[in-house]
Design a protein around this nucleic acid. Sequence first.
DNA 1: AGTCAAGTGTCAGCCACCGCCATAATCTCG
DNA 2: CGAGATTATGGCGGTGGCTGACACTTGACT
Lengths: 220, 220
Amino acid sequence: MRATGSAAGQAAAPPAGLRERKKRRTRDTLARSALELFDRQGYEGTTIDEIAALADVSQRTFFRYFASKEEAALSVQSMAESHFLAAVRARPAAESPLTALRAAVLASWDTIEEAIQSVVPLELHIRTYRMIEANPQLLAEHLRRQVQLEEELTREIARREGLDATDPRPRILVSAFGGVMRVTGRLLSGTTKGDVNELKRTIAEYLDQIGPALAENWRT
Amino acid sequence: MRATGSAAGQAAAPPAGLRERKKRRTRDTLARSALELFDRQGYEGTTIDEIAALADVSQRTFFRYFASKEEAALSVQSMAESHFLAAVRARPAAESPLTALRAAVLASWDTIEEAIQSVVPLELHIRTYRMIEANPQLLAEHLRRQVQLEEELTREIARREGLDATDPRPRILVSAFGGVMRVTGRLLSGTTKGDVNELKRTIAEYLDQIGPALAENWRT
DNA sequence: AGTCAAGTGTCAGCCACCGCCATAATCTCG
DNA sequence: CGAGATTATGGCGGTGGCTGACACTTGACT
């Protein structure tokens, strides 16, 4: 069968044949089972066998849907990432890169819930960030995906601005932006409550610092 | 015994007792054995048993020195990172943050060879970057360490500039800097020859773009 | 020399992960 | 609707990373 394409993050698909729907349901069930168990007993404290049992499939089937335990743990993050990337692509070409990125993050946090509700409730998704931050292996993989996303963002920005692919400026801007995203992600996992509005305010505030951060002299 | 403290990256120590010297020798031998085998047969194509056999110790002993296969693969990178961090701390306080970072990278590439020669020749170290780039798991862990290093850099810059720890500007600057480092790392792994001078030139060139990258309008 | 601490090997075992083949469920098409 | 081609699933067996426990050896210190 081979798990669905790039293994995650596509938006809702039109109801296809029974087989397809069943596959999707199995995958969602597996992801949800995994996340629930991780939340309850921790990532390392959960075995694949337990996840498979809860989803009522064999261990072997788990691995037909997810290449690894990590992948299951980060499957919802993948969805959130493509959701955000789509939001960036939807920004009008006239906006400056930073403006577009800023607007896209804020917008995607407004609509993230619908995008993931077929798998897990928003609250569990937010709690997942804590788990990631707490587990080195998960964090590592999470960062790798983030860097990969930055790669795509870089290309997208270069395209919007009509720049050569080797121009370093988009990459640098996106890196600074990614730095902000990483801190706010950490904040998300730190604060006890997942208040999305508060998060959005913090993001906006940090992003406004990107300009000043490159000024020559910070010492007043 | 418990492997050496933070598990890597300290500079040369004065010749202590026989026990200490032996431990150090074992660790270096293990790291070298691992890197050589990885280079020859690939990371995944090498088992811990093979590494242990080549270093002439038991598999169990390998794990007394390295917490994981990854850690052995990245042990030299750890040394390079602390080497660089030390170079940053050695920069005069009068230099602006970006100037200091820039000078520190260039300087640390000048002296990296001595820092690691007790373990592997420079050339093998450079080839290791290719291996990291080619293996998702290694790349993930590598990025995690890099982000952690950026964390320390951020603190260091904030300290130099006498800024509050929550000021986002050092973090953003370091992120942009880190973005440049990541591309050049990729270049290092891409070009067939590990010409350090050419690398240094590229780094300098990219770093000079950080300022312009934040300008409002890039479209000529 | 004798005691103590620390490094090492062996063994047994958990768990993530994968190839292989048999089986059972959909799909397709006449 | 039913036979045959596809495709998902289960079970089995095995590999390899990693760990705890325990006994043994070797350097350290008096």
